[in-house]
Structures are given as structure tokens and as C-alpha cells.
């Protein structure tokens, strides 16, 4: 197992290099630069512009800038934001818990609804229940997040007034930051109503972000379950007198989940991408919103650092998923 993890980690370094080259060249392809973005509409005198460009090292040839960036990144220094002058890593860590909270809730929402829905569809295949579940999930899968999020806001926040429109918590609450996860912090603070306020702020973004993974999981679980239900060991289990519930929930589901777990891992990338839209719409102070703002300001170190850190996250989550895969699938565990 350890050699497997090490082998997987050895692939990480070339992946990182590839990502940095890509991000570096892409961000410099966008017209404009941070100094121009800061100077506003009236612009600034050419001498001052040149001086500032030189100050941030932006006047040097791109390959040199890249080499400089890489050598510092390798030592753990992702630079400072050009706009706020804060270290990129600190800014990232400040906002990261908000995104984690949102993403975890979204994936939990997707798993809790998607897997049972897929199972039910498989067990009731070719009935109205099956068609209903699959139809709804196809619709969910096809829905653009920004549009779906706006619909949710219009209906639940504006028309019904059930939930707030944006932010993480009502302004009257200010729980002490312990974990950075609002749900946990409000519980720890013991302030009355704070937790409920945090929950009500979380629900809509969670649904908006979790819908696509939910639909993917439901469809995946259904097809995987259908395949497994036709297997010989399912028939053999029934022939030993096991109850239908035990056969489905234990013998079939365990095997059906193997491909589903992989998909959950792959969804993490989708979630981070979706978080950028969701956080922007709901003014959720996470890394998605942070990076969108950084792109507008051409804040090169923030964009580069943010993408690098997000990529790290995706890579590690997938590694964890692969290790988990071995836990539920003994065939992987023993054949290295």
C-alpha cells in the first residue's frame, strides 16, 4: 500500500509542472496587466507605469519570470498578492474553509440523495419510478449552475422568503473563528440562532453546487447496480435464502459502489469549478470568488497560486479515493 502511494505521488511533480506552465502562459495571454488594472480608466504616466512594472518584475522576459516563480514555489513561497500585498498562501487558507464547507455539504447532499435514487431506479427498472428518477437527474445534469442558482434564489429567497440571498451568516452574528467552518464555529460559539442562520445560508448554494454531482451519481449508481444485480453471486446469495434487502444492500451495493466511489473522486474537480460560479452568485467568501476577483485584477500571483493549490487538492483527493477504492474492493488491495 505504501509503495502504491509513493508511486502515485511520483506522478504529482510532472503534473504540477504542467499545470504551472499552462496557468502561467494562459494568464499572460489575457490582455492587460496588474498595473494597468490598478491604474483605472484614466491610466497613468508611462514612467510610473514602467517603474511599477519593474518593481513587480513584470518587465522581464516571460521564461525568466516563470523560472523565478517556480524556484520560489518549490520552496513553498507562492508570492504576495499584487493588490493586497498579503501572502497568497495566507489569503488562500483564509478562504479555503468556506469552500471546503460548501463542497463537503454539496457532495454529502449528492451522495445522500443520488445513491439511494440510483438504487431505487435500478430495482424498479423500466417502471414510471425509474423513468421519473432518470428524467429528473438528466434535467439536473443538463442545468447550467448559474441559471439553476438564480432560479433557486428567485423562488426560495425572493418569492417565498425562506432563505437569505447571499453570504454565510446574518450580520448580527459574529462567531469566533476556530475551524473556519461556519457550521462548526456557530455551534462552538453557543450563540442562539447562529447555527440555524448558517444553515439557512448554506442550503441554496449547497443545492446549486450539488445538483450536477447528484445527477451523475444517481445515473452511475443505477447502471452499476443493474450490472451487479445480474451477477451470479447475487443469484447465489438469493439461493442461500438471504432476504432481498440483505442481497441488495449488502451483496449488490458493495460491488456497485466500486465505480461510484471513483466518480465521487472525479466530482471534486467539478465541484471546485462549480464553486467558482456558485460562490460568485451567492457571494460566498471562498476561493472561487477570490480567484474570480483576482482574474479581474490581473493579480497574477493569486491566480497562479490559487490554481496550483486547487490542483493539489484535486490530486490528493483522488489519491485518497484510490486508497478507499482498495478498502471496498479487495481485488485491488491484494494485486499491487
Amino acid at each position: 500500500m505504501i509503495s502504491y502511494i509513493l508511486r502515485r505521488l511520483s506522478v504529482v511533480i510532472p503534473t504540477f509542472l504542467g499545470i504551472t506552465v499552462l496557468v502561467f502562459s494562459l494568464i499572460h495571454m489575457i490582455p492587460g496587466d496588474p498595473v494597468e488594472a490598478m491604474s483605472g480608466e484614466r491610466g497613468m504616466e508611462p514612467e510610473r507605469y514602467a517603474r511599477l512594472m519593474a518593481q513587480y518584475g513584470l518587465d522581464r522576459p516571460l521564461p525568466l519570470q516563470y523560472a523565478d516563480y517556480i524556484s520560489r514555489a518549490a520552496r513553498g513561497d507562492l508570492g504576495r498578492s499584487i493588490v493586497t500585498q498579503e501572502p497568497v498562501l495566507r489569503e488562500f487558507l483564509d478562504r479555503f474553509p468556506a469552500t471546503v464547507e460548501l463542497s463537503l455539504c454539496a457532495i454529502a447532499f449528492a451522495i445522500c440523495l443520488g445513491i439511494p435514487a440510483g438504487m431505487i431506479a435500478a430495482l424498479k427498472r423500466n417502471t414510471p419510478v425509474d423513468y421519473g428518477v432518470m428524467g429528473v437527474s438528466l434535467a439536473g445534469y443538463s442545468m447550467p449552475i448559474f441559471w439553476w442558482a438564480l432560479l433557486l434564489i428567485l423562488f426560495f429567497s425572493v418569492s417565498l422568503g425562506w432563505t437569505p440571498v447571499s453570504g454565510r451568516i446574518d450580520i448580527e452574528f459574529d462567531p469566533a473563528r476556530v475551524t473556519g467552518l461556519m457550521l462548526v464555529d456557530t455551534l462552538l460559539s453557543g450563540e442562539e440562532g447562529a447555527f440555524l442562520s448558517a444553515v439557512s445560508h448554506l442550503i441554496l448554494p449547497m443545492v446549486a453546487l450539488g445538483t450536477i454531482p447528484l445527477a451523475t451519481l444517481a445515473r452511475m449508481t443505477r447502471s452499476s447496480m443493474l450490472e451487479v444485480l445480474g451477477e451470479d453471486y447475487v443469484r447465489a446469495a438469493r439461493a442461500r435464502g438471504l432476504s432481498p434487502l440483505r442481497v441488495v444492500a449488502k451483496h449488490a451495493l458493495r460491488n456497485a459502489l466500486i465505480p461510484v466511489v471513483t466518480v465521487v473522486g472525479l466530482q471534486v474537480g467539478t465541484l471546485l469549478a462549480g464553486a467558482i460560479l456558485t460562490e460568485t452568485i451567492f457571494s460566498w467568501p471562498g476561493i472561487g470568488k477570490w480567484m474570480v476577483e483576482a482574474i479581474h485584477r490581473r493579480d497574477y500571483p493569486v491566480v497562479q497560486g490559487g490554481i496550483l493549490l486547487s490542483a493539489t487538492l484535486v490530486i490528493f483527493v483522488n489519491l485518497i479515493v484510490d486508497v478507499l477504492y482498495g478498502v471496498i474492493n479487495p481485488r485491488i488491495r491484494h494485486t499491487r
Binding site: E231, R235, A236
Partner: peptide, 16 residues
């Protein structure tokens, strides 16, 4: 009544 099947390779659940 008990039963055994043709292909023993697929009649045992691979996860258990």
C-alpha cells in the same frame, strides 16, 4: 434445499 452453480469463479461475492 441448497444449490451450487456452474461457474464457481463468479458465484462467490468478490467483496467478502
Amino acid at each position: 434445499i441448497a444449490m451450487i452453480f456452474q461457474d464457481p469463479g463468479t458465484t462467490l461475492n468478490p467483496c467478502f
